[in-house]
Design a protein around this nucleic acid. Structure first.
Lengths: 208, 208
DNA sequence: AATTCCAGAGAACAGTTGTTAACTGCATGG
DNA sequence: CCATGCAGTTAACAACTGTTCTCTGGAATT
């Protein structure tokens, strides 16, 4: 199964990754719809035509970036929601985890936030389908919780989406204060915590 | 005071508005950072150089579009929050109002959702400052409500921001289902209502 | 009636873009 | 060891970009 890649294919994947990295870097200061294929190949140091060996278009590259940014995040999300413990404990841990993830992969988060409503349809759809997946996974975890006993199916789905949206919103907020002093970053974290707390309270009293 | 504009300035403003309209149309299928100045003037039917008589750059035009899209919305927002009546009634009315506004000005909403995290800094900042203004106005209205008695200042601010975010989120959701059949549009409205209800429940039990 | 002002036109600039075709060199599989 | 496959190169294309400078016609001011 673990068939070591030949020298040939290994080099190809390396160039492909270089293209993705270069694009992600360039996308910190512009949107995908204005990203030029030549711009990307130039920063990698490769001929413009080489691009076509890996992607049909910049939109295609964008879809690959969505996969890179969100694909490996599913187990993390599950963990956040499924972790046992007090509600407030869980919230604090979730917010910390989001903050550290943003600090570790700022460009990825920026890309997702930017292109979620961006000008390139295939990319919007790719992001949407990933978020739908997240929401469904969160819903599954929430359903296991005794607090969700007696909940209507669509209410559970609503809550799951709300959580996913909040995580992205929090991530985007952290992104904006990344260069700010620690005090302001803490305030952002506290805002996120308060939001999740209010939602969690609403959740506990939903059945009244 | 109501000094009628001279023929001269009137024509200028007409061209300016034509540029804004053309840009807004073009931005339905791309982001501002990829919008070309020539592209805009071409659709209006004026020389590229005429653009500079009205805007320094496309970013500058973008800032003007933010004002056009959000500037006149402040009284509406205040009304939504300040309206008397049962909580659920208020929520229903708010969601209906958002839906009809999106149906009436889809391009404006799309523009705001897209450029809020878009690739053009001055536009992001313009949107942010408008949303901050909204949040502050909502906070002021919320403070008048007896339910908010005894609330900490930052908790009120958090709730206000949460409401503003929800309105934008709902608007963006309506936008996505604008071409969809009425049944799906209703489902979107119900999702928005449920979210606001949960938040409203959390709000009533916040003090426990 | 004469003068100033200025929105918009026109032409030209150096650079950029995506895409095509035909190529080269090297790892791969027979 | 030789033939094939294919990642990446080179060159060229027509079309497009933002910005400059110069000019013009008609409204606004005097």
């Amino acid at each position: 199964m673990s068939h070591t890649l030949g020298v040939r294919q290994a080099q190809k994947q390396r160039t492909r990754q270089a293209l993705l990295d270069a694009a992600l870097g360039l996308l910190e200061e512009q949107s995908l719809s204005s990203l030029g294929l030549r711009e990307v190949t130039r920063t990698v140091g490769v001929a413009p035509t080489a691009f076509y060996r890996h992607f049909r278009s910049t939109a295609d590259l964008g879809v690959a970036l969505v996969e890179e940014a969100l694909g490996s995040l599913h187990p993390t999300i599950r963990t956040i929601v499924a972790t046992a413990g007090d509600d407030d404990e869980r919230i604090d841990r979730a917010v910390e985890l989001i903050a550290s993830h943003v600090a570790a992969h700022p460009a990825h988060i920026r890309f997702i936030a930017r292109e979620r409503h961006g000008g390139v349809q295939p990319v919007r759809e790719a992001i949407r389908s990933q978020l739908d997946l997240f929401a469904d996974e969160v819903r599954t975890e929430l359903a296991k919780d005794p607090v969700s006993a007696g909940w209507r199916e669509e209410d559970l789905a609503m809550l799951a989406r709300l959580y996913v949206d909040q995580m992205l919103s929090a991530a985007s907020a952290f992104l904006e204060v990344l260069p700010a002093p620690a005090a302001e970053r803490r305030r952002t974290a506290e805002q996120a915590v308060r939001r999740l707390r209010l939602i969690s309270i609403g959740r506990r009293h939903w059945q009244d």
